[in-house]
């Protein structure tokens, strides 16, 4: 392994094309994330946000263009090799295994790097999980499942996180708890890509916002420009 060059972004995506079977869903996405930066991808349903994360992760196998992670080209790599570069993925559907209990779900992902959270840290951050650690994974409430999905990747020592709709369908008090986790991750210097419908939640955390429409990035808005761009953002999101 070679050390990442400081000036190069941690994730650099150029002209990313993606396909689901016959249909062409990503049409040349360009995106950069610097080390320690938090960016969001926002846009309407079907804009290609989740697909972009799946393409970075290698889950979307039919993809072309260039995705460089820590300076390494991954466009042709299988999913497991991409993850080994130190990426923690929290999928939209949470991805809790029903054939594993909470503890087994938590311990499943292998270590990807140094500095992962200890179990004690995790119990402190999400006390509910400690109580329910012997329950079947999918018996948890939606909020608990989301905590478990976060805890699962925080333990691995990943330093890049792809978070897909982490607040979707959650009660406000849980959203707050997830927000705290994301803030803590940011404070640790982790790099994050956040796909988020809840713009109020996203605006607080992100350094920049990528706006997607029809499989393309149509605008990038820096944090400082958000207050002056609210009308534009509203029209992008169709709210």
């Amino acid at each position: 392994m070679w050390a990442p060059i400081m000036t190069e972004p941690v994730i650099a995506i150029r002209q990313l094309q993606g396909y689901y079977g016959e249909s062409h869903v990503l049409h040349g996405v360009d995106l950069d994330v610097a080390a320690g930066e938090v960016i969001t991808i926002i846009g309407r349903n079907g804009a290609g946000k989740t697909t972009t994360l799946r393409a970075i992760m290698g889950i979307l196998e039919n993809r072309q263009g260039s995705i460089r992670i820590q300076g390494r080209e991954t466009i042709a790599d299988p999913s497991e090799r991409i993850a080994r570069l130190g990426i923690g993925y929290v999928p939209e559907e949470r991805g809790i295994y029903s054939s594993l209990d909470v503890m087994e779900n938590l311990m499943l992902p292998p270590r990807l790097g140094p500095g992962g959270m200890s179990l004690d840290d995790i119990w402190q951050l999400f006390p509910n999980l400690l109580e329910r650690r012997r329950s079947q994974g999918t018996r948890l409430s939606g909020g608990e499942q989301q905590m478990l999905a976060f805890a699962r990747v925080l333990r691995t020592g990943a330093n890049i996180f792809l978070l897909d709709e982490p607040t979707e369908g959650l009660a406000p008090v849980i959203v707050q708890q997830i927000g705290k986790a994301v803030e803590a991750m940011k404070a640790k210097g982790h790099t994050m890509i956040l796909v988020e419908q809840n713009f109020r939640f996203a605006a607080r955390l992100a350094d920049r916002h990528y706006v997607m429409e029809n499989g393309r990035v149509i605008d990038v808005i820096a944090k400082a420009d958000v207050p002056s761009s609210l009308d534009k953002i509203k029209s992008y999101l169709g709210v």
């Binding site: 497991e80 993850a83 993925y89």
Partner: peptide
């Protein structure tokens, strides 16, 4: 699919 995305 997800299991692979955890690096397994």
């Amino acid at each position: 699919t997800l299991t692979r995305a955890f690096g397994i």
